[in-house]
Amino acid sequence: MKSYFYFLLPLLLLIVSCEDDDDPVSTEAELSIAFRGEFGEDDLAIQSATYDYPTGEQLKVLLFQYYLSDLELLPADGGDAVRLSDIELIRWMSATEGPVATKTYTVPTGDYQGIRFGLGVKPELNAQDPNNSPADGTLNENEFWNASARYVFAKIEANADMEGDGVFDTPLTYHMGSDALYTTITFTQDFSLDGSNDPQLTIISDVLAALSDGNNTFDISDADQQRVHGGNQAIASDIWNRLANQFELEVR
């Protein structure tokens, strides 16, 4: 009887070891990218926070949003960029939302040297009309100016207390967009994705930095600069350039 045992044991081991131990090595990872809104040193809090403006006024931010086109990862070996999304609308518009909006993408595992996106709606999509988008689609009519001006690439809206009386009764609306403003932003930073201990990528955008870079501060007290919409893109460019230059990538 014991001999059967000694016969069966190696057989069992053989069978077990012959099982397909080829655990599939995952070639894809779920990558979550956090988009964090800030106002200076603070997290962006829609309506509920009161922010100091460099020229002495105070602001309550009601809306901050921007489009991203062609969000891509850049492989370390210099190969073709990995497209995460053709178009995204990143938006903060409610006091009930936190400062971080997260989007998740399935990407190939591997080594990467950076991330890239276009700030705004890329020309080929900007040429499309909103009726090509579902009513709840990213490129719906609510972000569309008209047939000639096309999509609004970014919006900053706030109510300001200009007199220091605690009354936020001066509306500020900055709507920017045109093919000429479309800007490609590239971050170079090495990171690896293996599907298990992946780093957290956070793209940070700062409303204050879009209005003031420390040297130049957009003059919100000028009544001519409190509403910047389609026709005032010369002024909008001033904000846009700071907006495009202030993005940061954090990899942890």
Partner: peptide, 11 residues
């Protein structure tokens, strides 16, 4: 009326 949560496009 200048209420703090008024839409800023109401000008």
């Amino acid at each position: 009326h200048g209420v703090e949560n008024e839409d800023p496009n109401i000008t």
